[in-house]
Amino acid sequence: MNILVLLRMIPDVVEELEISNDGKTLDREFLRLIPNETDDHALEEALLLKERHGGKVTVVAPDAPELDDVLFACLAKGADRAVKISGVEPVMGGRAAARLMAQVLTTAPGLLPADLILTGVQSTEDLDGLMAPILSHLLQLPYVDNVTQVTADGPGKTVTAVKEFPSAVRAEFDVQLPAVLGIQAAEKPPRYVPVAKVRAVMKSQHLESAAAPAGVEAGQLEILQMAKPEPAEHAEMLAGDPAQVAGKICEILAARGVL
């Protein structure tokens, strides 16, 4: 099975995020970029599929600081190829990312056709839409989201994707190949790759690169402003006797849609 894994680097929220002077974009100077968590799961699921059915796993990612290390780690984990899309400006949002990926996949040699395209179901910056469904539309491929498991009966024309529903219920879908799947979580937590192995891979393997196509349109959404919500340093205290407090909690729960 020939599997493409699409990986994006996104800002790490462990660090304080700052907004630039224009008030509309993130200040990229102090950002730490890390692989989108669900993309990591997509890679894990791809590797599990490869282990079960053979085939090839190729990771494709738009260039970003620290990306090389991440891609070498992907190779060390067992990916066969890692392709860096070079010459890209940092963009925010799933729409531009999907267009970029679609163009690269269709123009760069040796990527398509693939049986499966796996990527994280969402990233925390998919403001104007999720990347995976947009990509599926652009490539005219079927799409399933919130996938937690993919199984195949050997090399066939379909796979079974397990999608997560509420209350711990899951459902199986038959999906025609090729397809795009938005991975919510791999069957098991992404594997650990020791530092020594990554270093060895850095010596023995190389990253490929694909040029970014010129003029990928940005999203259509107009951002008026970005702001940091005041972090609540301390809980807002509710006072009163137990019955009063209970009443207040009920209101909060109702307002939050928990009740």
Partner: peptide, 26 residues
Amino acid sequence: FNVAHYGILADALEVLPALTEAVRGK
């Protein structure tokens, strides 16, 4: 209280039943 959004400074053994009642009522 540093991670909670809302805090109640009270005996849990009193607050829980009161809350159960309130939710039921609601």
